[in-house]
Simulated scan of single mutants.
Amino acid sequence: MTDPAALDGLPLPEHRQAARGHDAARAAILAQLAEHRLPGAILLHGPQGIGKATLAFELAAAILTATGDEDATRVREQIAAFSHPNLSVLRRRPKDSKSFYSVIRVEDIRELRDTLQQTRGRAGHRIAILDTIDDCNPNAANGLLKTLEEPPADTTFFLISHRPGSLLPTIKSRCHNLALRPLPDDLLAQVVSGSLPDIDAAALDRAIQLAGGRPRRAFETLALAEDSPVGALILWLRDPEATPIAAQLLLADALGSNPQGPDMSFAREILNDWLAGEMREAAMQPGQRRRLASATELWEKANALLAEADSVNLDMKQTLAVIFDSIRKHCALIASPAEPV
């Protein structure tokens, strides 16, 4: 099986190896490579779907070429085939022939560590890419920390994170941190039209409007039907209290009917963005402690419910109904007058 986050019909990051944008981050690592002072670990963080993994594989190719004894074309071919002996990639592993584990486990980290402790298969630097470190369960994160505390010689870890705030502070402190941002619309259009040269102009415009600078989200948008409930979710989140409860339940049913489908995948990203935005706005405004506490509780509850639904195959319709009800209550709370201090 392929990457559990793969989108049908689109090349994986290891096949592209050429990210659009992110020039400052790319230049910083290439400068360190030229000066022979690569860090032991690099944390590439930012919103999901902006090209972090693609940039990691692009930089891995540059490092393996510069420090090895093969030309760039040969190195890129081996990376795409996962056959380069100095490259290790860790993602969620297959659980069986049809599904993947919901997390990266401590035994996966131990296997990676053991691989990196073996004699290298070829001259040059070694690269380990964790896509994503967010998928590590607590034991795996602690196991990774021990490896970063005593890293193998001439090895660089690329840790990809969509949610760096949830990582162990001790892991972040041992990394060279690079924050990546969503792409401007012109670059995003180049990414989409480059993969889909025959795309209709109207479809491209709609994808760019909904993508928020994220190539992955643009492609997910193109996979949606014209009557997709994702559009209804976007409208509902603008004013949850204005929507009748019955319509809210119908929205949960429509989105949760196919937990592995493109509608649900897109909806989860939109929900995460909305919840993160609520916490960010509350944290940046004075006198918003009640809103921040409620938003933080809502974030934790929603993520716990979705993780539980994934791990034990709970009814996604019911899970969404509970999350939507909690969002509605949060909005009602912050709309009411604050209690006197």
Rank of each mutant, 00 (worst) to 15 (best):
A123L: 13
L64Y: 00
Q32P: 06
A60N: 06
I29C: 04
M264D: 05
L43D: 03
R238I: 06
E149F: 12
P85F: 04
G212Y: 09
L292F: 15
F324I: 05
T156W: 08
T319H: 03
L12V: 00
E281D: 15
A128I: 02
D154A: 15
R37W: 07
A218K: 00
A203T: 05
D253W: 08
L235R: 14
T73R: 13
K172G: 06
R74Y: 05
A41Q: 05
H15M: 11
P259H: 11
G9L: 07
W274L: 04
A140E: 05
W299H: 13
A179C: 12
A60R: 01
E281C: 08
V89S: 02
L271P: 03
L187A: 10
P4K: 08
I79S: 01
D315L: 09
G213D: 08
A28E: 13
A293N: 10
I234F: 07
T2S: 15
T65H: 00
L64V: 02
G143D: 04
S99T: 14
Q288R: 15
D186P: 05
E35K: 14
T67N: 08
A321I: 08
W236N: 02
E308W: 13
H162W: 12
A304Q: 14
T73G: 15
G121I: 05
T119N: 05
H45F: 05
I133F: 09
E70G: 03
A304R: 14
R280T: 12
D205I: 10
G213N: 10
R74G: 00
A66S: 06
S326D: 15
H330L: 09
S83C: 11
A203D: 14
L144E: 02
P259S: 12
N272W: 11
G165R: 11
K52C: 08
F157V: 03
F266N: 00
L44W: 04
G9K: 10
V106Q: 11
L38V: 05
L188Y: 04
V341N: 10
D154T: 06
A140H: 08
S97H: 14
P182C: 13
H45C: 13
L12A: 11
A141W: 01
P184K: 03
H125K: 06
V192I: 14
Q118V: 09
I109V: 15
E300F: 14
L112V: 12
T170H: 09
Q118L: 15
H15I: 07
K301R: 14
A223E: 11
A128N: 00
V230Y: 01
N303E: 10
L30D: 07
L87N: 01
T156D: 02
L188P: 01
D310M: 06
L298S: 06
L249T: 03
A302V: 03
P286Y: 09
E150F: 13
R74T: 10
L187R: 09
K172P: 00
S294M: 09
L38M: 11
G49S: 07
P182H: 12
T296L: 15
I79N: 02
I245N: 02
A179M: 13
K301C: 04
P39L: 09
Q209P: 00
S97I: 04
L320T: 01
S173E: 00
L249A: 03
A276Q: 13
A246M: 12
R291T: 07
G124W: 04
V312F: 15
